[in-house]
Amino acid sequence: MLSAFPHAMPVEGLIGGLMIGVAAALMLLGLGRIAGVSGLAARATGIADGGAPRGIALAFVIGLPLGALIISSLAGGIETRFPPSIIPLLIGGLLVGYGTRLGSGCTSGHGVCGMSRLSPRSLIATAIFMASGFVTVALMRAGGLL
């Protein structure tokens, strides 16, 4: 589809993105809340005290893998290429968990919901975590870790 980037999936990306956007719109217009996965996960597990009622957070967090499972079943499986070692999963998970709580959001809350709201706070957060991700992967590549 994109000749310069043979592995890209622009059509699937756009359609999947629309689905994510409709899901976030449902949370906003239905329940008056931001569909921020880090915050909802913290609330569902009881790690955070404030925010959405626990039942709502739990329902959203249970729905996530169910929806992914439906698509995977219909498609006869989808690709999930994880890092070959558990070490990057553990280090990455710790940093993502701590960082999203400290920065009050992740790709969904700041990225999808905040950027579409033109929230300066979310625009700054998204620019920073994107830049940080680019630098991290560039350093991993330079260090022979990719």
Binding site: G21, V22, L31, G63, L66, A68, A75
Partner: peptide, 10 residues
Amino acid sequence: AGALFGAGLA
């Protein structure tokens, strides 16, 4: 919403 979000990610 969670299911649609997860479906979109997949």
